[in-house]
Design a binder for these strands. Structure first.
Length: 920
RNA sequence: GCUCGGGUGGUGGAAUAGGUAGACACGCAGGACUUAAAAUCCUGUGGGCAGAAAUGUCCGUACGGGUUCGAUUCCCGUCCCGAGCACCA
């Protein structure tokens, strides 16, 4: 009987859907297991063969866990708000909702063909008002809370107002912006506007002036993780710095917890490292310098991690955007400084980065006093100091900081070495090692001793204190775009006020065009009556990460109208046990989501402080492009092996008309009109194409559609082949060439159950040799799945099937467990054979937790062997024994007999005094 | 520049508490079946040398050293590739 995969797959997919096989429900009698994929943005191009890689892996794991008796939650949905749909809408006038809906439908069709065990009843879409109601709700919660560093928790704004009434903000240790100290009586005398301004500085979701990444081409601001190398991640447009009043989330308040709680997560070290870098904790000191601009005297704060180098601070530097620049520019220097600032301002972020090696700067005309040497040192303004980090001002120690060094050499400022024996004639000495000199009371100490000693002295003198700084900035939350969640905020007399929960969701209004208005306002300004009770509503929308920050919680209870997630559902499903997705979200989504979760945790809405316990980053699947070689100036194409004897141009050719790098000549001539009459110069009667690994994209004609593979080979082959391609976490090119091997294997597997046309499975008891094949496989597949080493388990199946052919085995006691074993990988064929073996219900209902254990070596196999084909044990051997005597001892050992199971010894490797390996 | 990964046949990749390097698959070559093709099955396949052959032998896991009876695996140095961060004081 033929392995008719298309019929088998169609039937079982229909049956899974109609029987709701993968519907997950709370079952307190079973342990839960939550397997989540990063949900896709449904783009217009549809899925290519690289997209499902992670979904296949998570599906294998989900199905495996179900077999082991877990109650598995495995949902899927769509991250549906986003820029491409909006850009497309601007070009075509089609509503983004329409194109998004269309794309989702297409995605769903493609996904369904691969046979995933998703519970589609839990599907979420971020653009659905019933969904984004809870995104808006969370935002309102953040608006109505502040962060208290003394309790390490978010607390209600109402509590903050009480504190202000009783004691002002003097004793407060809160995450906040720039707020002057005030007493209770001062607070009581403040106007409503002033109070709301102050409260705004404390809110976790707040409106504030900040330097933002402005992308003129997109007409919107972008978050730091949406900008790479000065260009927007989406679209690659230039980005510049601009001061704007924007909604922000006080993520920085959670920096320490985000850092600390990561320790216990099962994430890869490199991913954790990326987050650590992004959070960028550094311990040091804040120090105050006296600065003088002519007669006026000020106190300027700086941050440093190297307080020990204070004696070598020979000048100071301000960021061009620093508010100190104006105060500290002397009249004589005014013209020069203004010219410098204007030039700096004009540069885009990209230009600034490209020129980062160029040294630029200008003297402000002011001087500071080094508090330890009492020297008068100049204050400069330079681009290499960033306004957003620390205080936007530094003390420069050219001898021990390479950036200060380059600057000092360029502008001829003094360099004072502070470490004995260091040579600063060519470059600075940045290492934190050596013995201090030229440093007053620090002389003779090692750097490691000097750092705390210097800070102690600074604190004793009252000119500074210990300080921890984080690189992590607050997230800019406003986007001047249409296709996103509207802010549930209106401006009552200009005061930002949230809508109450009963008014949510605040739905996205209709607009005539999806572009900004002529006056530069966001697209929502085009909406008629965009107001609440006559007050204007906020016109920007939320960024892409808003909707993806809590979606894993919504899956737990997707249709709840009263809450984001019920207590009951949350207490059962708790957190994501396994999260699979691309590494590109390492510093965006994965930070925001953790922050969002921690905030809801503080408020008691969720019960776990971390959302994603274990995380796997699947590698990207790249394209494998094919080339033909056109002889320049002709319509002749020469085969790969002959191309060097001609002057040729390399041209991409559609990989779908190439097989094993052999060009389908007929298809090529029909591919494009210009090739219709081309002349092909062959070698050995064939046209061989060149190839290269590139990004999978339409323009390179190397996109392989999973539908094509499903048509030709079936979903089970696609699933197994994607796993067989290589380690899950590694990036690798897609190469359709190898797929035949996997397809052949499935056909061979199928034929194990048939004799000629008949299904024939024997009820006879299995032989030891047959059992050995099965147990070897169970052992291997189980450990491989647990380690996400799916490529080697596919190999293990192939070996087992080959072995069974050799043994001519068709016994139920061997084949039935094999069907169970293979079902996570190739569920359709497994279901079909399972039903042919006489089982009525789906193999997914089989759920034998014991099935895997039953067949592990320890529990059932009588041979104490290691399955690598090697037996290892220690024998008490005398080193004087001859080779023959050792062999005799090995042969007569009882373990050897058991291991051989009737086979014979091929080779014995004896390592004196250690191990004996027997190969059979 | 800094921080992580990683360099194994023609190709994708196996194998590390140090113990037969190249599992499994692709490709290639040869063969069986067939009028033929497809499908299926069998055999060979890292390189050199010797041999008619079975086989033997030497060299081989980026390069150079080291530890060890034994190194793809551990240590030191060099080169190359990939990813991330990039004036964070």
């Amino acid at each position: 009987m033929e392995y008719n995969f298309s019929e088998i797959e169609k039937n079982w997919q229909a049956r899974w859907a109609s029987e709701k096989t993968f519907k997950a429900e709370i079952d307190k009698g079973k342990p839960k297991f939550y397997v989540l994929d990063m949900f896709p943005y449904p783009s217009g191009a549809g899925l290519h063969v690289g997209h499902p890689l992670g979904y296949i892996a998570s599906d294998i794991y989900s199905r495996y866990k179900r077999l082991k008796g877990f109650n598995v939650l495995h949902p899927m949905g769509y991250d549906a708000f986003g820029l491409p749909a909006e850009q497309y809408a601007i070009q075509t006038g089609q509503h983004p909702a329409t194109t998004t809906e269309k794309n989702i439908k297409r995605y769903r069709e493609q996904l369904d063909r691969i046979g995933f065990s998703f519970d589609w009843e839990r599907e979420v879409r971020t653009c659905d008002p019933d969904y984004y109601k809870w995104t808006q709700w969370a935002f309102v919660q953040m608006f109505e809370h502040w962060y208290d560093f003394s309790t390490h928790k978010a607390r209600a704004i109402a509590e903050l107002e009480k504190i202000f009434e009783i004691s002002g903000n003097i004793a407060l240790n809160a995450a906040c912006g720039d707020v002057p100290l005030f007493s209770a009586s001062e607070w009581s005398k403040m106007e409503r506007e002033r109070r709301s301004e102050i409260l705004m500085e404390y809110r976790i979701a707040y409106l504030g002036e900040t330097s933002v990444n402005w992308c003129a081409a997109l007409g919107t601001v972008l978050a730091n993780d949406e900008v790479k190398e000065g260009l927007s991640v989406r679209g690659g447009h230039p980005v510049e710095q601009k001061k704007m009043r924007q909604w922000q989330l006080r993520v920085s308040a959670y920096a320490e917890r985000l850092l600390k709680d990561m320790e216990e997560l099962e994430w890869t070290e490199s991913l954790k490292e990326m987050q650590r870098n992004w959070i960028g904790k550094s311990q040091g000191a804040e120090m105050t310098f006296k600065v003088m601009n002519g007669e006026s005297e000020y106190s300027l704060d700086i941050f440093t991690t190297r307080a020990d180098t204070i004696y070598g601070a020979t000048f100071m530097v301000l960021a061009p955007e620093s508010e100190w620049v104006e105060r500290l520019t002397s009249n004589e220097q005014k013209v020069e400084v203004e010219a410098y600032l204007a030039a700096a301002k004009k540069k885009t972020e990209r230009e600034r980065m490209a020129e980062s090696k160029k040294v630029t700067g200008v003297f402000s005309g002011s001087f500071a006093i080094n508090p330890f040497t009492q020297e008068k040192i100049p204050v400069w303004i330079a681009e290499y100091v960033l306004a957003g980090y620390g205080t936007g001002a530094i003390m420069a120690v050219p001898a021990h900081d390479s950036r200060d060094y380059t600057f000092a050499r360029h502008f001829n400022l003094p360099v004072i070495p502070l470490i004995e024996g260091c040579d600063v004639s060519e470059e600075s000495f940045d290492a934190k090692e050596g013995v201090m000199c030229n440093s007053g009371f620090l002389n003779g100490m090692s750097v490691k001793e000097a750092i705390p000693a210097a800070i102690d002295e600074v604190e004793r003198r009252g000119i500074g204190r210990r300080k921890i700084n984080y690189r992590l900035r607050d997230a800019i939350f406003s986007r001047q775009r249409y296709w996103g969640e509207p802010f549930p905020i209106y401006y009552n007399d200009g005061i930002a006020t949230p809508l109450s929960i009963e008014k949510l969701p605040l739905e996205l209004p209709e607009v005539d065009k999806f572009l900004p208005t002529e006056s530069g306002e966001p697209p929502l300004a085009r909406a008629e009556n965009w107001s609440f009770n006559g007050w204007p509503l906020e016109k920007s929308t939320m960024p892409g990460f808003a909707g993806s920050s809590a979606y894993y919680l919504r899956y737990m209870d997707p249709s709840n109208r009263e809450a984001l997630v019920s207590k009951d559902a949350n207490n059962y499903w708790r957190d994501v046990d396994l999260y699979i997705g691309g590494t590109e979200h390492a510093t965006g989504h994965l930070i925001y989501s953790r922050f969002w979760n921690k905030f809801l945790y503080d408020l008691g809405y969720v019960c776990e402080k971390e959302p994603f316990r274990k995380l796997i980053n699947q590698g990207m699947i790249q394209g494998r492009s094919n080339f033909v070689y056109r002889v320049k100036g002709t319509n002749k194409f020469v085969s790969y092996g002959l191309k060097d004897s001609y002057d040729t141009t390399e041209i991409h050719v559609d990989v779908n008309i190439v097989n094993n790098d052999r060009l389908d000549l007929e298809a090529f001539r029909n591919w494009m009109p210009e090739y219709e009459n081309s002349e092909l110069i062959l070698e050995d009667g064939e046209y061989i194409c060149g190839w290269a690994v590139e990004k999978m994209s339409k323009s390179m004609f190397n996109v392989v559609n999973p539908d094509t593979i499903c048509d030709k080979y079936g979903a089970d082959t696609l699933r197994m082949y994607e796993m067989f391609l290589g380690p899950l976490e590694q990036s690798k090119p897609w190469d359709t060439n190898g797929i035949d091997g996997v397809h052949r294997f499935l056909k061979r597997f199928w034929r194990l159950f048939f004799e000629r046309e008949n299904f024939r499975v024997s009820e006879e008891a299995a032989s030891p040799a047959e059992l050995k094949v099965l147990h070897k496989l169970i052992n291997k597949v189980q450990t491989d799945i647990e380690n996400f080493s799916f490529n080697t388990s596919v190999s293990a199946f192939m070996i087992a099937v080959n072995d069974l052919y050799e043994l001519n085995c068709n016994k139920r006691s061997i084949l039935e467990p094999m069907v169970v074993l293979i079902s996570p990988f190739a569920p359709h064929i497994a279901e079909e054979l399972w039903s042919k073996l006489g089982h009525n219900s789906s193999i997914s209902f089989a759920m034998f937790p014991e099935y895997f254990e039953k067949f592990t070596i320890e529990n059932s196999f009588e041979y104490p062997v290691s399955f690598n084909g090697k037996l290892r044990f220690k024998l008490e051997l005398d080193r004087s024994l001859s080779v023959q005597e050792i062999e005799a001892a090995v042969r007569s050992n009882e373990n050897t007999e058991k291991f051989l199971a009737g086979g014979s010894i091929k080779k014995i490797i004896v390592v004196p005094g250690k191990i004996i390996n027997i190969v059979c």
